[in-house]
Design a binder for these strands. Structure first.
Length: 150
DNA sequence: GCCAACGTTGGC
DNA sequence: GCCAACGTTGGC
């Protein structure tokens, strides 16, 4: 059982979209490190901080959980998708995704607020130059944020 | 829109 | 295998 922070652009899938749909496939990851986390490390039941990125108010918007093991991201096979990958085949898919299930919407814990807590200073998402869309969260960080957003 | 930081590509 | 060029991310 581990904890994660997963970035989503709310224009694409917001916490409200997740709440409405209950479960979404985490399509569109095109970074090997993030893919490997989904493929090799994430397990059903893992806790997820649902993070809004590339938007007016970046920050944690709610809680979710990993709801499936990994399987091929269908957008890699779709020539009409912006995530299409000509080098991916059905036999040898390149990109994987997991399903993510809604747990709870919270107030927005903004990036700027997160930076104010020494308890969160080591979070990977706060490190300079960090762009990875899926990052592990320590149990202590998870507990701290859960208490903050209780 | 800017741009720092980082990842990927491809020529050699 | 190196590394310059290029593309992407994502906060501001």
């Amino acid at each position: 059982m581990q904890y994660w922070l997963m970035k989503s652009e709310p224009d694409d899938v917001s916490i409200d979209d997740l709440a409405a749909r209950n479960t979404v496939g985490w399509y569109g990851v095109r970074n090997y490190q993030a893919r490997n986390f989904m493929r090799d490390t994430q397990q059903v039941g893992d806790g997820v901080l649902f993070y809004h990125s590339s938007c007016e108010q970046p920050g944690v918007a709610g809680f979710a959980r990993v709801a499936s093991s990994s399987y091929p991201d269908p957008t890699q096979f779709d020539p009409n998708s912006k995530y299409f990958d000509a080098k991916a085949t059905l036999e040898k898919p390149r990109w994987m995704q997991v399903d993510v299930e809604y747990v709870r919407k919270t107030r927005l814990l903004s990036l700027s607020e997160m930076r104010q807590y020494p308890e969160l200073a080591e979070m990977l998402v706060l490190q300079k130059g960090s762009r990875l869309s899926i990052t592990p969260v320590s149990p202590a960080e998870w507990r701290f944020i859960q208490d903050l957003l209780a």
